[in-house]
Nucleic acid binder design. Structure first.
Lengths: 131, 131, 131, 131
DNA sequence: GTGGTCTAGACCACT
DNA sequence: GTGGTCTAGACCACC
Protein backbone atom coordinates (compact mmCIF):
# COMPACT_ATOMS: atom_id res chain seq x y z
CA UNK A 1 0.00 0.00 0.00
CA UNK A 2 1.29 3.41 -0.79
CA UNK A 3 -0.56 6.60 -0.23
CA UNK A 4 -3.91 7.33 1.21
CA UNK A 5 -5.78 10.52 0.47
CA UNK A 6 -9.16 11.74 1.57
CA UNK A 7 -11.31 12.70 -1.42
CA UNK A 8 -13.66 14.55 0.89
CA UNK A 9 -11.01 16.82 2.34
CA UNK A 10 -11.09 20.47 1.41
CA UNK A 11 -7.46 20.35 0.31
CA UNK A 12 -7.27 19.01 -3.24
CA UNK A 13 -6.21 15.42 -3.67
CA UNK A 14 -3.20 16.27 -5.78
CA UNK A 15 -1.92 18.53 -3.01
CA UNK A 16 -2.44 15.80 -0.45
CA UNK A 17 -0.26 13.56 -2.60
CA UNK A 18 2.41 16.24 -2.82
CA UNK A 19 2.42 16.76 0.93
CA UNK A 20 2.53 13.04 1.55
CA UNK A 21 5.50 12.45 -0.75
CA UNK A 22 7.37 15.40 0.72
CA UNK A 23 6.75 14.16 4.23
CA UNK A 24 8.04 10.68 3.38
CA UNK A 25 11.18 12.18 1.91
CA UNK A 26 11.72 14.47 4.88
CA UNK A 27 11.34 11.50 7.19
CA UNK A 28 13.79 9.49 5.09
CA UNK A 29 11.18 6.85 4.40
CA UNK A 30 11.82 7.73 0.79
CA UNK A 31 15.56 7.97 0.30
CA UNK A 32 17.11 10.25 -2.34
CA UNK A 33 17.51 8.39 -5.59
CA UNK A 34 14.83 5.84 -4.85
CA UNK A 35 12.12 5.20 -7.39
CA UNK A 36 8.51 6.24 -7.04
CA UNK A 37 5.68 4.09 -8.35
CA UNK A 38 4.50 4.91 -11.84
CA UNK A 39 1.48 7.05 -12.35
CA UNK A 40 -0.54 4.15 -13.65
CA UNK A 41 0.45 1.87 -10.79
CA UNK A 42 -0.52 4.46 -8.22
CA UNK A 43 -3.75 5.27 -10.02
CA UNK A 44 -4.84 1.64 -9.83
CA UNK A 45 -3.67 1.26 -6.24
CA UNK A 46 -5.47 4.34 -5.03
CA UNK A 47 -8.38 3.99 -7.42
CA UNK A 48 -8.24 7.60 -8.43
CA UNK A 49 -7.84 9.34 -11.74
CA UNK A 50 -4.31 9.11 -13.25
CA UNK A 51 -4.55 12.79 -14.18
CA UNK A 52 -4.67 13.66 -10.51
CA UNK A 53 -1.44 11.84 -9.80
CA UNK A 54 0.19 13.23 -12.91
CA UNK A 55 -0.60 16.71 -11.67
CA UNK A 56 0.99 15.97 -8.31
CA UNK A 57 4.13 14.53 -9.92
CA UNK A 58 4.38 17.52 -12.25
CA UNK A 59 4.25 19.92 -9.35
CA UNK A 60 6.80 17.89 -7.39
CA UNK A 61 9.11 17.94 -10.38
CA UNK A 62 8.64 21.67 -10.78
CA UNK A 63 9.68 22.11 -7.17
CA UNK A 64 12.77 19.98 -7.79
CA UNK A 65 11.71 17.32 -5.34
CA UNK A 66 11.56 14.49 -7.86
CA UNK A 67 12.95 13.92 -11.32
CA UNK A 68 11.37 12.20 -14.26
CA UNK A 69 13.71 10.10 -16.37
CA UNK A 70 11.94 9.27 -19.60
CA UNK A 71 11.59 5.57 -20.06
CA UNK A 72 13.01 4.79 -16.64
CA UNK A 73 10.60 6.21 -14.14
CA UNK A 74 10.49 8.99 -11.56
CA UNK A 75 13.01 9.29 -8.75
CA UNK A 76 13.59 11.32 -5.62
CA UNK A 77 16.10 14.05 -6.44
CA UNK A 78 19.60 13.25 -5.15
CA UNK A 79 20.47 16.62 -3.72
CA UNK A 80 19.07 20.02 -4.27
CA UNK A 81 20.50 23.40 -3.53
CA UNK A 82 18.34 25.30 -1.10
CA UNK A 83 16.46 28.24 -2.52
CA UNK A 84 17.51 31.71 -1.50
CA UNK A 85 18.09 31.44 2.25
CA UNK A 86 16.44 34.81 2.79
CA UNK A 87 13.24 33.58 1.22
CA UNK A 88 13.38 30.42 3.30
CA UNK A 89 13.64 32.37 6.51
CA UNK A 90 10.70 34.59 5.63
CA UNK A 91 8.52 31.65 4.60
CA UNK A 92 9.38 29.73 7.71
CA UNK A 93 8.68 32.70 9.90
CA UNK A 94 5.29 33.07 8.27
CA UNK A 95 4.42 29.42 8.83
CA UNK A 96 5.49 29.58 12.44
CA UNK A 97 3.45 32.72 12.95
CA UNK A 98 0.44 30.83 11.66
CA UNK A 99 1.16 28.10 14.16
CA UNK A 100 1.29 30.54 17.04
CA UNK A 101 -1.88 32.32 15.96
CA UNK A 102 -3.66 28.99 15.73
CA UNK A 103 -2.33 27.96 19.13
CA UNK A 104 -3.53 31.18 20.71
CA UNK A 105 -7.06 30.75 19.41
CA UNK A 106 -7.14 27.18 20.62
CA UNK A 107 -6.00 28.22 24.05
CA UNK A 108 -2.69 26.37 23.83
CA UNK A 109 0.18 28.03 25.70
CA UNK A 110 3.17 29.03 23.60
CA UNK A 111 5.44 27.06 25.89
CA UNK A 112 3.49 23.93 24.99
CA UNK A 113 3.94 24.65 21.30
CA UNK A 114 7.64 24.95 21.82
CA UNK A 115 7.76 21.74 23.81
CA UNK A 116 5.73 19.95 21.18
CA UNK A 117 8.12 21.06 18.47
CA UNK A 118 11.14 19.81 20.41
CA UNK A 119 9.39 16.54 20.92
CA UNK A 120 8.58 16.17 17.24
CA UNK A 121 12.16 16.89 16.25
CA UNK A 122 13.49 14.35 18.74
CA UNK A 123 11.31 11.57 17.49
CA UNK A 124 11.45 12.55 13.84
CA UNK A 125 10.92 9.31 11.93
CA UNK A 126 12.25 7.24 14.80
CA UNK A 127 15.98 7.81 14.58
CA UNK A 128 16.47 9.90 11.49
CA UNK A 129 19.16 12.51 11.94
CA UNK A 130 18.37 15.84 10.37
CA UNK A 131 20.76 17.31 7.85
CA UNK B 1 -5.20 51.71 6.97
CA UNK B 2 -6.50 48.40 8.23
CA UNK B 3 -5.96 45.24 6.34
CA UNK B 4 -4.21 44.43 3.16
CA UNK B 5 -4.88 41.32 1.13
CA UNK B 6 -3.40 40.01 -2.05
CA UNK B 7 -6.15 39.52 -4.63
CA UNK B 8 -3.82 37.42 -6.76
CA UNK B 9 -2.93 34.97 -4.02
CA UNK B 10 -4.21 31.44 -4.36
CA UNK B 11 -5.73 31.59 -0.89
CA UNK B 12 -9.09 33.33 -1.13
CA UNK B 13 -9.28 36.93 0.01
CA UNK B 14 -11.90 36.18 2.64
CA UNK B 15 -9.56 33.65 4.22
CA UNK B 16 -6.72 36.13 4.22
CA UNK B 17 -8.97 38.50 6.10
CA UNK B 18 -9.82 35.79 8.61
CA UNK B 19 -6.16 34.95 9.16
CA UNK B 20 -5.27 38.60 9.48
CA UNK B 21 -7.93 39.35 12.07
CA UNK B 22 -7.00 36.26 14.06
CA UNK B 23 -3.35 37.27 14.00
CA UNK B 24 -4.16 40.77 15.22
CA UNK B 25 -6.19 39.31 18.07
CA UNK B 26 -3.47 36.81 18.96
CA UNK B 27 -0.97 39.65 19.04
CA UNK B 28 -3.27 41.73 21.21
CA UNK B 29 -3.37 44.45 18.61
CA UNK B 30 -7.10 43.84 18.71
CA UNK B 31 -8.14 43.63 22.35
CA UNK B 32 -11.12 41.50 23.43
CA UNK B 33 -14.27 43.57 23.40
CA UNK B 34 -12.96 46.09 20.92
CA UNK B 35 -14.97 46.92 17.86
CA UNK B 36 -14.01 45.93 14.35
CA UNK B 37 -14.59 48.29 11.45
CA UNK B 38 -17.99 47.89 9.88
CA UNK B 39 -18.29 45.80 6.76
CA UNK B 40 -18.94 48.80 4.59
CA UNK B 41 -16.14 50.83 6.10
CA UNK B 42 -13.65 48.07 5.46
CA UNK B 43 -15.02 47.52 1.99
CA UNK B 44 -14.29 51.07 0.89
CA UNK B 45 -10.97 51.08 2.74
CA UNK B 46 -9.75 47.93 1.05
CA UNK B 47 -11.65 48.62 -2.17
CA UNK B 48 -13.10 45.15 -2.23
CA UNK B 49 -16.68 43.96 -2.27
CA UNK B 50 -18.62 44.15 1.02
CA UNK B 51 -19.85 40.60 0.48
CA UNK B 52 -16.31 39.31 0.67
CA UNK B 53 -15.76 40.94 4.04
CA UNK B 54 -19.16 39.80 5.24
CA UNK B 55 -18.17 36.23 4.44
CA UNK B 56 -14.98 36.58 6.45
CA UNK B 57 -16.82 38.11 9.41
CA UNK B 58 -19.45 35.36 9.34
CA UNK B 59 -16.82 32.67 9.42
CA UNK B 60 -15.03 34.41 12.27
CA UNK B 61 -18.29 34.56 14.17
CA UNK B 62 -18.91 30.88 13.55
CA UNK B 63 -15.51 30.15 15.02
CA UNK B 64 -16.39 32.21 18.08
CA UNK B 65 -13.66 34.74 17.46
CA UNK B 66 -15.94 37.73 17.04
CA UNK B 67 -19.53 38.53 17.94
CA UNK B 68 -22.15 40.45 16.06
CA UNK B 69 -24.43 42.79 17.96
CA UNK B 70 -27.47 43.62 15.89
CA UNK B 71 -27.40 47.17 14.61
CA UNK B 72 -24.35 47.99 16.68
CA UNK B 73 -21.44 46.34 14.94
CA UNK B 74 -19.06 43.44 15.42
CA UNK B 75 -16.73 42.97 18.36
CA UNK B 76 -13.88 40.75 19.44
CA UNK B 77 -15.25 38.02 21.72
CA UNK B 78 -14.47 38.66 25.37
CA UNK B 79 -13.45 35.20 26.41
CA UNK B 80 -13.87 31.77 25.02
CA UNK B 81 -12.99 28.41 26.39
CA UNK B 82 -10.85 26.36 24.10
CA UNK B 83 -12.42 23.46 22.22
CA UNK B 84 -11.54 19.90 23.11
CA UNK B 85 -7.88 20.02 24.16
CA UNK B 86 -7.27 16.64 22.55
CA UNK B 87 -8.28 17.91 19.14
CA UNK B 88 -6.14 20.98 19.66
CA UNK B 89 -3.05 18.90 20.32
CA UNK B 90 -3.57 16.77 17.23
CA UNK B 91 -4.14 19.79 15.01
CA UNK B 92 -1.08 21.52 16.39
CA UNK B 93 1.09 18.46 15.87
CA UNK B 94 -0.07 18.28 12.28
CA UNK B 95 0.75 21.90 11.65
CA UNK B 96 4.19 21.54 13.21
CA UNK B 97 4.86 18.46 11.12
CA UNK B 98 4.10 20.54 8.06
CA UNK B 99 6.58 23.13 9.28
CA UNK B 100 9.32 20.55 9.67
CA UNK B 101 8.65 18.99 6.29
CA UNK B 102 8.76 22.43 4.72
CA UNK B 103 11.98 23.24 6.56
CA UNK B 104 13.62 20.05 5.42
CA UNK B 105 12.84 20.74 1.79
CA UNK B 106 14.19 24.24 2.11
CA UNK B 107 17.38 22.95 3.62
CA UNK B 108 16.75 24.64 6.95
CA UNK B 109 18.14 22.73 9.94
CA UNK B 110 15.59 21.69 12.55
CA UNK B 111 17.62 23.44 15.21
CA UNK B 112 17.14 26.70 13.34
CA UNK B 113 13.38 26.13 13.21
CA UNK B 114 13.36 25.66 16.92
CA UNK B 115 15.45 28.76 17.48
CA UNK B 116 13.21 30.77 15.18
CA UNK B 117 10.12 29.69 17.11
CA UNK B 118 11.66 30.71 20.44
CA UNK B 119 12.57 34.05 18.93
CA UNK B 120 9.05 34.60 17.62
CA UNK B 121 7.52 33.81 20.99
CA UNK B 122 9.88 36.16 22.78
CA UNK B 123 9.00 39.12 20.60
CA UNK B 124 5.36 38.18 20.17
CA UNK B 125 3.57 41.52 20.56
CA UNK B 126 6.26 43.00 22.69
CA UNK B 127 7.89 45.12 20.04
CA UNK B 128 5.69 43.60 17.40
CA UNK B 129 6.37 45.23 14.08
CA UNK B 130 3.11 44.41 12.42
CA UNK B 131 3.41 43.80 8.72
CA UNK C 1 -35.35 42.05 37.97
CA UNK C 2 -37.59 41.30 35.05
CA UNK C 3 -36.41 40.08 31.77
CA UNK C 4 -33.01 39.24 30.46
CA UNK C 5 -32.20 39.16 26.79
CA UNK C 6 -28.99 38.44 24.96
CA UNK C 7 -28.12 41.25 22.55
CA UNK C 8 -25.63 38.98 20.83
CA UNK C 9 -28.13 36.28 20.03
CA UNK C 10 -29.14 35.81 16.43
CA UNK C 11 -32.81 36.05 17.35
CA UNK C 12 -33.81 39.72 17.57
CA UNK C 13 -34.13 41.20 21.02
CA UNK C 14 -37.77 42.13 20.54
CA UNK C 15 -38.57 38.52 19.73
CA UNK C 16 -36.72 37.32 22.78
CA UNK C 17 -38.90 39.61 24.86
CA UNK C 18 -42.04 38.26 23.22
CA UNK C 19 -40.98 34.67 23.83
CA UNK C 20 -40.09 35.44 27.41
CA UNK C 21 -43.42 37.09 28.20
CA UNK C 22 -45.33 34.26 26.54
CA UNK C 23 -43.40 31.67 28.49
CA UNK C 24 -44.10 33.42 31.79
CA UNK C 25 -47.78 33.53 30.97
CA UNK C 26 -47.83 29.88 29.93
CA UNK C 27 -46.13 28.97 33.18
CA UNK C 28 -48.62 31.05 35.16
CA UNK C 29 -45.85 33.23 36.52
CA UNK C 30 -47.76 36.02 34.87
CA UNK C 31 -51.44 35.55 35.69
CA UNK C 32 -54.17 36.76 33.32
CA UNK C 33 -55.16 40.31 34.21
CA UNK C 34 -51.90 41.15 35.89
CA UNK C 35 -50.06 44.27 34.88
CA UNK C 36 -46.85 44.40 32.93
CA UNK C 37 -44.16 46.99 33.61
CA UNK C 38 -44.36 50.10 31.48
CA UNK C 39 -42.18 50.42 28.45
CA UNK C 40 -40.09 53.13 30.07
CA UNK C 41 -39.62 51.14 33.28
CA UNK C 42 -38.47 48.09 31.39
CA UNK C 43 -36.21 50.12 29.14
CA UNK C 44 -34.37 51.54 32.14
CA UNK C 45 -34.27 48.16 33.88
CA UNK C 46 -32.87 46.31 30.89
CA UNK C 47 -30.84 49.25 29.62
CA UNK C 48 -32.08 48.83 26.11
CA UNK C 49 -33.86 51.08 23.69
CA UNK C 50 -37.54 51.73 24.55
CA UNK C 51 -38.40 51.32 20.88
CA UNK C 52 -37.34 47.70 21.10
CA UNK C 53 -39.70 47.01 23.98
CA UNK C 54 -42.47 48.95 22.31
CA UNK C 55 -42.11 46.74 19.28
CA UNK C 56 -42.38 43.63 21.42
CA UNK C 57 -45.48 44.91 23.22
CA UNK C 58 -47.09 45.87 19.92
CA UNK C 59 -46.57 42.40 18.56
CA UNK C 60 -47.88 40.81 21.75
CA UNK C 61 -50.97 42.97 21.56
CA UNK C 62 -51.47 42.10 17.91
CA UNK C 63 -51.39 38.44 18.90
CA UNK C 64 -53.97 39.09 21.58
CA UNK C 65 -51.67 38.09 24.40
CA UNK C 66 -51.70 41.42 26.17
CA UNK C 67 -53.96 44.45 26.13
CA UNK C 68 -53.06 48.10 26.36
CA UNK C 69 -55.44 50.25 28.38
CA UNK C 70 -54.65 53.84 27.64
CA UNK C 71 -53.64 55.71 30.77
CA UNK C 72 -53.75 52.58 32.90
CA UNK C 73 -51.00 50.35 31.56
CA UNK C 74 -50.69 47.02 29.76
CA UNK C 75 -52.20 43.80 31.08
CA UNK C 76 -52.19 40.11 30.33
CA UNK C 77 -55.36 39.32 28.41
CA UNK C 78 -58.02 37.67 30.58
CA UNK C 79 -59.14 34.98 28.23
CA UNK C 80 -58.77 34.49 24.57
CA UNK C 81 -60.57 32.27 22.19
CA UNK C 82 -58.28 29.80 20.50
CA UNK C 83 -57.59 30.46 16.86
CA UNK C 84 -58.97 28.04 14.32
CA UNK C 85 -58.27 24.63 15.83
CA UNK C 86 -57.29 23.29 12.43
CA UNK C 87 -54.54 25.87 12.07
CA UNK C 88 -53.34 25.09 15.58
CA UNK C 89 -53.00 21.42 14.82
CA UNK C 90 -51.03 22.06 11.64
CA UNK C 91 -48.71 24.54 13.33
CA UNK C 92 -48.12 22.21 16.23
CA UNK C 93 -47.43 19.30 13.96
CA UNK C 94 -44.88 21.39 12.09
CA UNK C 95 -43.13 22.40 15.28
CA UNK C 96 -43.02 18.84 16.53
CA UNK C 97 -41.66 17.69 13.20
CA UNK C 98 -38.87 20.20 13.60
CA UNK C 99 -38.15 18.78 17.02
CA UNK C 100 -37.92 15.25 15.69
CA UNK C 101 -35.69 16.26 12.78
CA UNK C 102 -33.42 18.09 15.17
CA UNK C 103 -33.35 15.11 17.51
CA UNK C 104 -32.46 12.74 14.68
CA UNK C 105 -29.50 14.85 13.60
CA UNK C 106 -28.28 15.10 17.15
CA UNK C 107 -28.48 11.38 17.58
CA UNK C 108 -31.22 11.52 20.20
CA UNK C 109 -33.64 8.62 20.16
CA UNK C 110 -37.28 9.49 19.56
CA UNK C 111 -38.22 7.64 22.72
CA UNK C 112 -36.03 10.03 24.66
CA UNK C 113 -37.74 12.99 23.08
CA UNK C 114 -41.07 11.61 24.13
CA UNK C 115 -39.86 10.97 27.66
CA UNK C 116 -38.41 14.45 27.87
CA UNK C 117 -41.72 15.97 26.84
CA UNK C 118 -43.62 14.00 29.46
CA UNK C 119 -41.10 15.13 32.02
CA UNK C 120 -41.43 18.76 31.03
CA UNK C 121 -45.22 18.61 31.22
CA UNK C 122 -45.12 17.01 34.64
CA UNK C 123 -42.87 19.66 36.12
CA UNK C 124 -44.36 22.56 34.21
CA UNK C 125 -43.77 25.60 36.40
CA UNK C 126 -43.54 23.48 39.53
CA UNK C 127 -47.14 22.56 40.19
CA UNK C 128 -49.12 24.48 37.60
CA UNK C 129 -51.98 22.47 36.23
CA UNK C 130 -52.48 22.83 32.53
CA UNK C 131 -55.80 24.03 31.20
CA UNK D 1 -39.61 18.01 -8.40
CA UNK D 2 -37.28 18.38 -5.49
CA UNK D 3 -37.69 21.14 -3.00
CA UNK D 4 -40.11 23.94 -2.66
CA UNK D 5 -39.45 27.06 -0.65
CA UNK D 6 -41.53 30.10 0.06
CA UNK D 7 -39.66 33.21 -1.09
CA UNK D 8 -42.01 35.41 0.91
CA UNK D 9 -41.47 33.62 4.20
CA UNK D 10 -39.63 35.49 6.92
CA UNK D 11 -37.19 32.64 7.32
CA UNK D 12 -34.53 32.93 4.63
CA UNK D 13 -34.77 30.64 1.65
CA UNK D 14 -31.39 29.07 2.29
CA UNK D 15 -32.53 28.08 5.78
CA UNK D 16 -35.69 26.57 4.39
CA UNK D 17 -33.55 24.48 2.10
CA UNK D 18 -31.39 23.38 5.03
CA UNK D 19 -34.43 22.40 7.08
CA UNK D 20 -35.94 20.57 4.14
CA UNK D 21 -32.83 18.53 3.40
CA UNK D 22 -32.41 17.67 7.07
CA UNK D 23 -36.02 16.57 7.26
CA UNK D 24 -35.64 14.36 4.20
CA UNK D 25 -32.59 12.75 5.72
CA UNK D 26 -34.26 12.26 9.08
CA UNK D 27 -37.18 10.61 7.33
CA UNK D 28 -34.81 8.39 5.35
CA UNK D 29 -36.14 9.75 2.10
CA UNK D 30 -32.51 10.70 1.54
CA UNK D 31 -30.37 7.72 2.47
CA UNK D 32 -26.83 8.15 3.79
CA UNK D 33 -24.34 8.13 0.93
CA UNK D 34 -26.88 9.14 -1.66
CA UNK D 35 -26.15 12.06 -3.94
CA UNK D 36 -27.91 15.38 -3.76
CA UNK D 37 -28.78 17.26 -6.92
CA UNK D 38 -26.03 19.57 -8.07
CA UNK D 39 -26.26 23.23 -7.19
CA UNK D 40 -26.96 24.25 -10.75
CA UNK D 41 -29.55 21.51 -11.27
CA UNK D 42 -31.45 22.56 -8.19
CA UNK D 43 -31.12 26.21 -9.12
CA UNK D 44 -32.91 25.76 -12.42
CA UNK D 45 -35.43 23.35 -10.87
CA UNK D 46 -36.39 25.78 -8.15
CA UNK D 47 -35.78 28.83 -10.29
CA UNK D 48 -33.70 30.49 -7.64
CA UNK D 49 -30.13 31.70 -7.67
CA UNK D 50 -27.36 29.08 -7.47
CA UNK D 51 -25.63 31.13 -4.79
CA UNK D 52 -28.59 30.68 -2.48
CA UNK D 53 -28.41 26.92 -2.79
CA UNK D 54 -24.63 26.98 -2.45
CA UNK D 55 -25.03 28.80 0.85
CA UNK D 56 -27.44 26.16 2.10
CA UNK D 57 -25.16 23.32 1.01
CA UNK D 58 -22.15 24.94 2.67
CA UNK D 59 -23.98 25.30 5.93
CA UNK D 60 -25.13 21.69 5.76
CA UNK D 61 -21.56 20.63 5.16
CA UNK D 62 -20.36 22.67 8.12
CA UNK D 63 -22.91 20.87 10.27
CA UNK D 64 -21.59 17.56 9.01
CA UNK D 65 -24.88 16.59 7.40
CA UNK D 66 -23.53 16.38 3.86
CA UNK D 67 -20.10 16.05 2.29
CA UNK D 68 -18.66 17.63 -0.79
CA UNK D 69 -16.44 15.55 -3.06
CA UNK D 70 -14.47 17.82 -5.35
CA UNK D 71 -15.65 17.65 -8.88
CA UNK D 72 -18.04 14.82 -8.12
CA UNK D 73 -20.93 16.33 -6.25
CA UNK D 74 -22.38 16.43 -2.75
CA UNK D 75 -23.50 13.43 -0.75
CA UNK D 76 -25.34 12.66 2.46
CA UNK D 77 -22.79 11.89 5.17
CA UNK D 78 -22.52 8.17 5.89
CA UNK D 79 -22.45 8.28 9.65
CA UNK D 80 -21.72 10.87 12.24
CA UNK D 81 -21.37 10.66 15.97
CA UNK D 82 -23.60 13.03 17.83
CA UNK D 83 -22.11 16.18 19.38
CA UNK D 84 -21.84 16.49 23.13
CA UNK D 85 -24.94 14.71 24.44
CA UNK D 86 -25.25 17.26 27.23
CA UNK D 87 -25.66 20.10 24.76
CA UNK D 88 -28.15 18.04 22.79
CA UNK D 89 -30.34 17.52 25.83
CA UNK D 90 -30.36 21.21 26.70
CA UNK D 91 -31.19 22.25 23.14
CA UNK D 92 -33.95 19.70 22.93
CA UNK D 93 -35.43 20.81 26.21
CA UNK D 94 -35.47 24.37 24.98
CA UNK D 95 -37.22 23.41 21.78
CA UNK D 96 -39.82 21.38 23.63
CA UNK D 97 -40.42 24.28 26.01
CA UNK D 98 -41.13 26.46 23.01
CA UNK D 99 -43.60 23.87 21.79
CA UNK D 100 -45.45 23.83 25.09
CA UNK D 101 -45.54 27.62 25.30
CA UNK D 102 -46.90 27.75 21.78
CA UNK D 103 -49.48 25.09 22.57
CA UNK D 104 -50.64 26.93 25.65
CA UNK D 105 -51.22 30.12 23.71
CA UNK D 106 -53.12 28.26 21.07
CA UNK D 107 -55.31 26.66 23.66
CA UNK D 108 -54.07 23.17 22.95
CA UNK D 109 -53.97 20.87 25.97
CA UNK D 110 -50.60 19.44 26.86
CA UNK D 111 -52.00 15.95 26.69
CA UNK D 112 -52.86 16.56 23.06
CA UNK D 113 -49.34 17.71 22.35
CA UNK D 114 -48.01 14.53 23.84
CA UNK D 115 -50.45 12.42 21.87
CA UNK D 116 -49.56 14.26 18.67
CA UNK D 117 -45.88 13.59 19.25
CA UNK D 118 -46.47 9.88 19.77
CA UNK D 119 -48.49 9.82 16.59
CA UNK D 120 -45.78 11.54 14.61
CA UNK D 121 -43.14 9.13 15.86
CA UNK D 122 -45.29 6.12 14.99
CA UNK D 123 -45.79 7.22 11.41
CA UNK D 124 -42.33 8.73 10.98
CA UNK D 125 -41.35 7.56 7.52
CA UNK D 126 -43.46 4.49 7.64
CA UNK D 127 -46.28 5.77 5.49
CA UNK D 128 -44.76 9.24 5.43
CA UNK D 129 -46.77 11.52 3.20
CA UNK D 130 -44.06 14.01 2.39
CA UNK D 131 -45.32 17.52 1.88
C1' DG E 1 -26.30 53.36 11.23
C1' DT E 2 -25.58 48.03 11.42
C1' DG E 3 -25.42 43.16 9.33
C1' DG E 4 -28.29 39.57 6.48
C1' DT E 5 -30.30 37.96 2.23
C1' DC E 6 -30.80 37.49 -2.65
C1' DT E 7 -29.84 38.16 -7.62
C1' DA E 8 -27.11 38.29 -11.88
C1' DG E 9 -23.30 37.05 -13.99
C1' DA E 10 -18.27 36.17 -14.23
C1' DC E 11 -14.03 33.40 -13.56
C1' DC E 12 -11.34 29.68 -11.56
C1' DA E 13 -9.81 25.11 -9.59
C1' DC E 14 -10.57 20.28 -9.28
C1' DT E 15 -11.71 15.59 -11.17
C1' DG F 1 -19.10 18.21 -15.21
C1' DT F 2 -18.58 19.74 -10.09
C1' DG F 3 -18.30 23.38 -6.24
C1' DG F 4 -15.75 27.89 -4.69
C1' DT F 5 -14.83 32.75 -5.08
C1' DC F 6 -15.72 37.46 -6.23
C1' DT F 7 -18.28 41.51 -8.01
C1' DA F 8 -22.17 44.73 -8.54
C1' DG F 9 -26.04 46.28 -6.87
C1' DA F 10 -30.56 45.71 -4.61
C1' DC F 11 -33.75 45.25 -0.60
C1' DC F 12 -34.84 44.25 4.18
C1' DA F 13 -34.73 43.79 9.38
C1' DC F 14 -32.88 45.45 13.55
C1' DC F 15 -31.46 49.02 16.82
Amino acid sequence: MWLTVDPRSSTPMYQQIIADVKERIAKDILAPGSRLPSIRELAVDMTINPNTIAKAYQELEREGVIEVVRGKGTFVTEKREGPSPAASAADLRELLTKVLVEAHHKGVAFADVSRELEDLILHWSGSATDE
